[in-house]
Design a protein around this nucleic acid. Sequence first.
DNA 1: AACTTTTTCGCAAACGTTTGCGGAAAGATT
DNA 2: AATCTTTCCGCAAACGTTTGCGAAAAAGTT
Lengths: 331, 331
Amino acid sequence: MRNPATLKKISDHLSVSISTVSRALKDHQDVSPETKRRVKELAEMLDYEPNSFAINLRKKHSDLFAVIVPEISSYFYHSFIEAVEEEARLKGFSIMILQSRNNPELESNNLRLCRYNHVAGVFIAVNNSSENHPAFKKMEDWDIPMVFFDKVPAEGNFNKVCMADEQAGALSAEKIVQKGHQHFIAVMGSPSMSITIGRENGIRTYLSKYAPGVTFDCLYVDHGEKVETLLDRYSNSELQGKLLFSMSDEILCGIIPFLNQRGLKLPADISLLTISNGFLPRLFSPQVCYIETNGNKLGKMAFNRMSEILDGKKVVCERLLDCEYFSGGSM
Amino acid sequence: MRNPATLKKISDHLSVSISTVSRALKDHQDVSPETKRRVKELAEMLDYEPNSFAINLRKKHSDLFAVIVPEISSYFYHSFIEAVEEEARLKGFSIMILQSRNNPELESNNLRLCRYNHVAGVFIAVNNSSENHPAFKKMEDWDIPMVFFDKVPAEGNFNKVCMADEQAGALSAEKIVQKGHQHFIAVMGSPSMSITIGRENGIRTYLSKYAPGVTFDCLYVDHGEKVETLLDRYSNSELQGKLLFSMSDEILCGIIPFLNQRGLKLPADISLLTISNGFLPRLFSPQVCYIETNGNKLGKMAFNRMSEILDGKKVVCERLLDCEYFSGGSM
DNA sequence: AACTTTTTCGCAAACGTTTGCGGAAAGATT
DNA sequence: AATCTTTCCGCAAACGTTTGCGAAAAAGTT
């Protein structure tokens, strides 16, 4: 549009002041019904839409939330994003999505972008590698509320919503023990991630408490290493009858092709239990048993927390989302 | 930050004018090296970051692209988004993601939001149901460039980048014919979608030209109907030896559980060919044969087109992304 | 010494909106 | 008829930045 309608343009046409137009459009009591009618009519006709830049310049912040994730290409993250987007929309907010790709520099840049755009708040799942504390603190200085989700900094006083990782680990261990396995192989993500630590701790704690005899090999998929190569150390006969525990959907996506390639059948040759968002496990035959980590629920929980903060409940807190076991036929 | 640094604040401290500070920070030739040094030093110290609202208010548009998709939860879309995000970032843009959920009203609202935020451009995959032409035209009036991708309006003079749907259909038909099938079952998406029409046309055209004897049942998954219920009309014996063609990943995700439930084995009992982004087909055993629709490549193509438009090449055009066949073991 | 050129900087307007304050006109109350 | 309310509206400043223009000071040219 060469000349988008502005308050000034409307006011000129109607020979009233800009202020009156502004007030008329928001039904301010200080303007007569008749004037309101005329203003609104003309605004409609001229296709007036307010200019967000000017509005935000006054308000000093925008109706935009940022979501920062390592990678958007993950079932968990995009179900999280979907939930946040939906809640945000209902409250008149939009969301901006940024990827940090496990690159601390990108993460800092993304945070700078959030400041630059004066976002109303930031939802962030942090990188595997680093804990970018100075950058996080800077957001506090700028009064931009942050809600950490899923992958959260281990240290520091932050608002966090996450899966109950310890619980998920413990629940996994419980199911494995129930099935009578004395030994199993756990395929975990990067050992520097909070979720890896939490889930492994959950397993260890449960085992030492309720099944001290049960042991497990713990493999870590780190730095783009492939699940397949990690598992290649085991021969088929070593795997026979064993149980594989997968920490996440990403890892499951490595395990499945490995099993296919080795010709190992579920659950006859090998058992499988995963932590998952629930989409993938149901596609296979037999369906893979999983502990659910629900991105959607976590997204709603995160948004609620954000709303509270925006409403003034600034005291930092940490929330956990319980998880459930879904039985498939893989063990 | 209670009081974020502004040009004015810096200028006060240094007893120079706001203009000089502004110019110093962008290395304008009109300011002396010494002044530049002092300004930059103080700016650094005060943690100055420019205010995007004020900048955009002058520039009249932001460094933000919008991506509008029916649902973010689709491999294809989020690989597309990922590609666009990456390209955008390299050029100093961010992206805002909006879902229209096959709801024309939401779609219009999203477009309004794009206008409100004066985005630099819009990437949009349209709804199944409607063709929201007035809303699209309005964006033109506002000089906001739009690039339609994947699901594009059938009518209208718009910039489009899409998969070569006809080609994908034809290639599918070719592979099916090559395998010697005289009849097959095609499971398609909503018949109002451009991709459905294109892909089906591709199949029909190929068949009538090169294999007039080959026929197929054409099923449409529409309005949230489930693939499973659609396929329930066929008995196992009717399906024995048949080939199922799936138009997309979404449909594949319905077919796989159906086959599992019916106990039909690939490729012994039934054959399967799908059009896919390539992630899912490789997870199964045997791997599912597919025609690749590459979201990443399409994303890059769309971004290139957008860049061209922004650089002044405003003439509308339509681009197609070729597709390839990947052989699995499902037929 | 008188001039031109270059260097360096500030003034002020503009982008579009919101809002506190004050004022005129109309109506209501003595 | 004088005073007080109420209704309706405009003025002007503010948000933070950019930029054309002009001007003072410094440097260079005769």
